[in-house]
Design a protein around this nucleic acid. Structure first.
Lengths: 145, 145
DNA sequence: GGATATAGTTCGACCCGCTTAACTAATAAA
DNA sequence: TTTATTAGTTAAGCGGGTCGAACTATATCC
């Protein structure tokens, strides 16, 4: 990796992290949700129909903790918890429409910011960003475990 | 903004947010620090010598909350809290070397990931990423209010 | 059928972060 | 100099997040 790329990435990461933290904090304050709660919602947005214990393992907490967090989210009507007819010990978890809207709005906030940033650029520059971000996205997906 | 750019940005944001959340959670677990604590440390990393109340205002909490959070960070030897000789009511806050190392390591983790991603690209592609990220970083900085 | 394993819940305990309110100490204003 | 303001700390109380342990209910294995 070139020295230059390294520096560019570092600077960009700092700016981006800054902004991400601020947005995320704002999202927590707006919704009144905790870091854990948002984490669970995001997980359910990606991996629907996952059981309580699986969620806990993924979040690195006990199933007791996961159960309680989900119980609060059910109370907030953000998550739907039903019995699995295949295995009646297990629960099927799903975001409610309300929960899905909320998480998608969170994603939206992030997109919005970069859109604002790119709006200030010329068409040629935008073309380059499109190509670069496409490259990065694809490379990132293949790098994912 | 072109339709295409909008989609590219959205997809990229999702992938990036995913990864950011995971890394951030990992950082919290590793260090044993909370969201608030890391927030304060990051703030101090940017704005040294800021007083307790200012920190609180920036974080959106009361000065009591800020005082308590900082007290814990002082206990962890991540923050140095000294009396301001100019105004002996006020405190001067500074990251300790230990605190600075920790936050910089956090930034490093983020950079590292993108470096891993870009390592997989050809030199020409890397050139393009450099240009694109430089554009984005500069545009982002001017957008920051 | 009886023993064992699994999915999830509940309870008690503890820490963290937040608030409000009361407080100390120092500065600024009258 | 007396009063008001400002910076920060402390204490009590609440809810969230977590754990370990005990528990219920279902499924699986022999």
């Amino acid at each position: 990796m070139s020295k230059q790329l390294s520096n560019v990435v570092r600077e960009w990461s700092e700016v981006f992290m800054h902004r991400s933290m601020r947005d995320f904090k704002g999202f927590m304050d707006e919704t009144g949700l905790s870091f854990s709660q948002i984490g669970v919602l995001m997980r359910l947005n990606d991996e629907a129909h996952e059981g309580i214990s699986k969620i806990g393992i993924h979040m690195g907490v006990t199933n007791a903790a996961a159960s309680q967090t989900i119980d609060r989210l059910v109370g907030l009507q953000l998550v739907e918890r039903t019995e699995d007819p295949q295995d009646r010990r297990a629960k099927i978890l799903k975001l409610t429409p309300k929960g899905r809207d909320l998480i998608e709005k969170g994603i939206e906030i992030r997109s919005k910011w970069v859109e604002d940033v790119t709006d200030a650029l010329t068409p040629q520059q935008q073309e380059m960003i499109i190509t670069a971000l496409t490259l990065l996205t694809e490379a990132a997906r293949t790098t994912e475990k």
